[in-house]
Amino acid sequence: MGRFISAAVLREMAKLDKDIVLEEDSVLTPSAKDLAKELGITITKGRQEIVGQSVSGQLAGQPVNPQNERQVTSGAIGADTQNADLKKNVQKILSEVLKPACENPKATHVVGKNVVIQPFAEAPLGQKVGLVDVIDARVGNMASGFMTFDHSRLPWFLNYDEVDYIIEGDFVLEVEDKVFRAVAGDVVYIPKGSQVVFSSPTFCKVFYATYPANWADFCE
C-alpha cells in the first residue's frame, strides 16, 4: 500500500507548488481530492493527471491535444533540479505529518475523581461547553478526555478520527445529512474529515478518544 495523502498533507504540499506529482503507489483521500479542486491544484501520478482540468500525458490508445498537453515525464515537473527539490520537500512534509504523535508511549492511569473539566475556549459565545484531555501526545498516540454540553451546540470540523462514549444525559451529533441521538451507554464514531455539530438539548457528559493524539494541531 502506498502513502496516503490527506487534505492536511496536500495543503502543505500546495504551499510549494500548485502542480504536484505523486509516486505511482500514492493514495489520495477523498477530502484531499476535494481540497485540490477547491484550491485549483493539479495532481499527477506518473503520466496521468488525476486532478485537474485536462488529462496530461498520452494514455494508451488516446490522442493528445497539443494545446492541452503538459510535459510530464516519470513524475517530473520542470527541470531535474526543481523535481529533486520538490521531492525532498514533499518527503520532509510527509515525515513530519506521518510521524507518531508520541515517540515514547507509556501506560498511564488517570484518577477520574481528580479530573476537572474546563470551559472550552473554542466554543461559540454563550455556549456552555466543557472539555479536558486526560491522555495526550505526551504519553500516547491516541488522546482521550471528557466533554460536557449544557443546553449548548458546538459546530466543529474533525481533521482526525474520534470515538465518543456517552456517560450521562442526551447527546446529539449532526454529521452531513444525518442526526444521531445518543444516551448513556451509547457509542458513536466520527471519521476524519467530518463537518459536525455536537449538542445537547439538556446536559450530557461524554468520554472521547481521538487519533492522532495531537488532534488540536489539525484544527483549522
Rank of each mutant, 00 (worst) to 15 (best):
A143T: 14
F4N: 03
L154W: 01
Q67L: 09
V110H: 04
P201V: 05
E96N: 07
R70H: 08
Q195L: 13
S56V: 01
A121I: 06
Q82M: 12
L35A: 08
A8N: 10
K178L: 11
F157P: 02
P105R: 02
Y208D: 00
C102S: 11
V172S: 06
P119C: 03
A84I: 15
G193R: 02
E12R: 14
A60W: 15
L125A: 10
L86S: 11
S200P: 02
M13Q: 07
F198A: 05
Q82D: 14
L131C: 08
D170G: 03
L59H: 10
E103L: 15
Q53Y: 00
K99W: 05
D34L: 13
E168S: 13
T108A: 00
A7V: 01
A32I: 06
L94T: 02
L16V: 14
T108Q: 05
P212E: 01
W156C: 06
S144R: 12
A184L: 01
P212G: 08
V179A: 07
N104E: 10
T148W: 04
A213P: 13
T81P: 06
I41F: 03
L125K: 14
E49K: 07
G112R: 10
W215C: 05
Q62L: 14
Q58A: 09
F207Q: 12
V21M: 02
S199A: 12
G2V: 04
L86A: 13
A101M: 06
T81C: 12
L125N: 08
V110P: 01
A182G: 05
P155D: 13
V116M: 00
V196T: 14
K18T: 07
L158F: 15
K128N: 07
A209S: 13
E176D: 14
D19A: 13
F146D: 00
